[in-house]
Amino acid sequence: MSFGDVEDLRGLSIRLALSNTFYESSGQWWFSVDSVSLMYNVSEEAVFNTSEVYAPASSSYHCLHVSSLQRYSTLLLPSTNHARRWAITFTDFQIQAFNVTSGRFSPVSDCATFLTPAILMGLVTSLILLLVLAYALHMVIHLKHIEHDDEHKEDIYFPQNIEESEHCCMESEAEKNIL
């Protein structure tokens, strides 16, 4: 651990309160970090409650920042007056409460939120494509209705073969000679 600008490291104690709970809906055990306590020189204790720091008991929890600062999405909430004076940030935080084997972390359960910028842009792009598809289908349906509008136009005679067209032209010349 790196403590940054803390002067006397011997006077600093960090305690993590963990719990293990079985959830029937998922059918497995989950561990969570309930609180983080900082004790500095035995005289001052700052307690932070945690939110959303949990993972299945068979895996580890990893997050790039677990912090009391808003810019890192505030996973640590001050619960005492002393805690309001502290700003705490764990960078590249990884913890596993149970089932640790051979000194290595189990597969990671990451803290990434559901609506990351990439997922949000994918959803917006999908919505735009869906609207374009709906507009295209609307236009195709509209074209079929235009074909039915031909019934209102004047009938025009188109000969089916060459003989009919010659016969047509001969009659018109004969009609001209009669006149």
Rank of each mutant, 00 (worst) to 15 (best):
T89I: 06
F48S: 14
L38G: 06
H65P: 00
F90I: 10
D92H: 11
K153N: 08
S106T: 01
H138E: 01
I119G: 02
F22I: 02
R10M: 08
I88V: 15
S172Y: 02
Q70W: 01
I88G: 08
S79Y: 12
E164M: 08
P159W: 10
T101F: 04
A46L: 10
F3W: 11
R85L: 14
H152V: 10
F158Q: 08
L143H: 06
S32T: 07
Y135I: 09
L12K: 13
V36H: 08
S43N: 15
S68V: 05
T116P: 05
S37R: 14
I156Q: 09
L115V: 11
K144P: 00
E166L: 11
L143S: 08
A46Y: 06
E147W: 03
C63D: 14
F98E: 02
L137Q: 07
E173P: 00
K144E: 06
S60G: 13
Y23G: 01
Q70R: 02
E151G: 01
L130C: 12
S37I: 09
V140L: 15
E7L: 07
R15G: 05
Y40G: 07
Q96I: 01
C168I: 03
S109W: 14
L130H: 09
L38P: 12
D34H: 11
C111P: 04
V100P: 00
S13T: 13
S37E: 11
L123C: 13
R71W: 02
R85P: 03
L69Y: 02
T50A: 15
S106V: 01
L38V: 14
H65Q: 04
G27Q: 05
E154G: 07
D8N: 14
S37H: 11
L133C: 01
G103S: 06
Q96D: 00
V47K: 14
D5Q: 13
E52N: 14
S19K: 05
H142W: 10
S126H: 05
L16K: 03
T125N: 04
W86M: 15
